[in-house]
Design a protein around this nucleic acid. Structure first.
Lengths: 118, 118
DNA sequence: CGTTGACTTAGAGTTAACTCTAACTTGTAT
DNA sequence: ATACAAGTTAGAGTTAACTCTAAGTCAACG
């Protein structure tokens, strides 16, 4: 799969994909005879995973750390699990806080609906 | 209330508070005889509201827009309500997506727990 | 065979949201 | 009175995460 197809498939610009490779988020991307990148379904699954971590507010630096651990092989399995479990706790806290903010926002909108805001 | 007290009460640095004032997020802050800022409980309620919008990922530019509308008085009530209702829809979408990501993350962690990750 | 479009690189530029610095003034404690 | 903490301003610097530019290569099309 070439740059253009992969880019539109994952919804990231070619700039961003090259940037991710540059900072080590995406490794060992294959090249064809003319030096162009060739993406595989393995790259697709990895980028989708990276996107989910990013969308749940994990900094790229921490995703890099996960990538580095993965690169290190089986010996890092426990560290990777711990990293994801920490992220899960953060995510749960985040969702809880967003729900509380939503309730506050609904209260505020109710004041507008009742004409109590001037 | 002086800068230091207000700063620690709202959890924003003095730098940030001055910055918010500079960009028009915080208006008409009172001054004492020596030119130092004096914050009121009205400022406190407003900043807490701003913080909630910010924590729910509303860009400062859009919060500025709300501030501007508020400044314009009663004639902008409907616009402000519409802005908050749009934000509410965004927030609900965000929470839904985060919950879905959480489920995916839990699945991934389960793979680790079952020793299915190498 | 020449243009078009997609690709390559290194490195510069952008954006949002702060965060800090320099130079200075003012209020409080010893 | 003098040190020290806290405040002031304008404007410069930082950070994360892109985003773009310049200069070039390469394959396919008419």
């Amino acid at each position: 799969m070439n740059m253009k197809e992969f880019s539109s498939l994952v919804g990231l610009s070619s700039y961003t994909l090259r940037y991710y490779e540059k900072i080590g988020l995406l490794k060992n991307v294959q090249r064809n005879s003319s030096g162009h990148r060739v993406y595989t379904s393995k790259d697709l699954r990895w980028i989708e995973f990276v996107k989910r971590l990013k969308d749940t507010a994990m900094p790229l630096e921490e995703i890099q750390e996960y990538a580095r651990l993965r690169e290190a092989g089986s010996s890092s399995v426990l560290q990777r699990q711990a990293l994801l479990e920490k992220h899960k706790r953060n995510l749960i806290d985040h969702i809880t806080q967003q729900q509380s903010h939503l309730a506050d926002l609904e209260d505020k909108i109710d004041l507008y609906k009742k004409g109590k805001v001037r």
